[in-house]
């Protein structure tokens, strides 16, 4: 793969901690994911009431993008030039299950909306106005080669100038996000090894 794609920022959320560019920027005190999400939202964002309506998958992805893109020059790019490639193992199963539990009573339309894994990309796009290409892969494992190749292709062959690349997984109490911002110039080339290093880093 040609070196036309560079990692310019990273955000990891797992085990009640949030890391921005390898630095611990938030540690949750509450016991669960919901507490972490709410506290981190209050700390990093606020003023976006729609956050509370999102499902955990969308909240996780949205929050990682929020932390990663704060004051980023990417926000000044043309909206059509920012896209994303996301992936996970369980698609929207976490919410599918909760939605299914409401069906026998009165099914909730607001929950049904989140029974698709790509809604998290929609939420990030709505937040920032991003209109570039989006795709979502469902893979058994974190597939660094797939994510690397696809993001590099998008930057090389389409009008995209920046791309969020992420693994966003949640199922019951288990969750993790590994998100990288990828751009056409930078110092750290986007490689599968670099993404694997990011994902596997001990925290």
């Amino acid at each position: 793969m040609s070196n036309s794609a560079y990692i310019t920022g990273t955000c990891i959320i797992r085990e009640n901690k949030i890391f921005l560019n390898d630095k611990l920027v938030w540690e949750g005190e509450g016991p669960g994911l919901q507490e972490l999400l709410r506290a981190a939202y209050d700390h990093f964002s606020g003023q976006y009431p729609k956050f509370h309506k999102m499902d955990p998958l969308s909240k996780l992805g949205w929050l990682a993008a929020e932390v990663l893109l704060k004051d980023s020059p990417v926000l000044q790019l043309p909206k059509e030039a920012v896209g994303m490639v996301l992936s996970n193992r369980s698609a929207s199963l976490d919410t599918d299950f909760r939605y299914y539990a409401t069906v026998k009573d009165i099914a909730s339309p607001a929950l049904f909306v989140y029974t698709l894994p790509n809604i998290v990309m929609g939420e990030i796009c709505i937040r920032h106005g991003f209109k570039g290409e989006n795709t979502f892969f469902v893979s058994e494992q974190f597939d660094a080669a797939l994510l690397t190749t696809y993001a590099a292709q998008l930057l090389a062959e389409t009008p995209l100038q920046a791309c969020l690349v992420a693994w966003v997984e949640v199922l019951e109490h288990r969750y993790e996000v590994a998100m990288a911002l990828v751009e056409r110039s930078g110092t750290q080339p986007l490689t599968a090894a670099a993404l694997n290093f990011l994902y596997n880093k001990k925290i």
């Binding site: 909306v113 929609g122 796009c125 709505i126 920032h128 991003f130 209109k131 570039g132 290409e133 795709t135």
Partner: peptide, 11 residues
């Protein structure tokens, strides 16, 4: 082929 996000609403 091309893909774009409408960035408007979930549904």
């Amino acid at each position: 082929f091309a893909n774009a996000n409408d960035a408007y609403h979930q549904t």
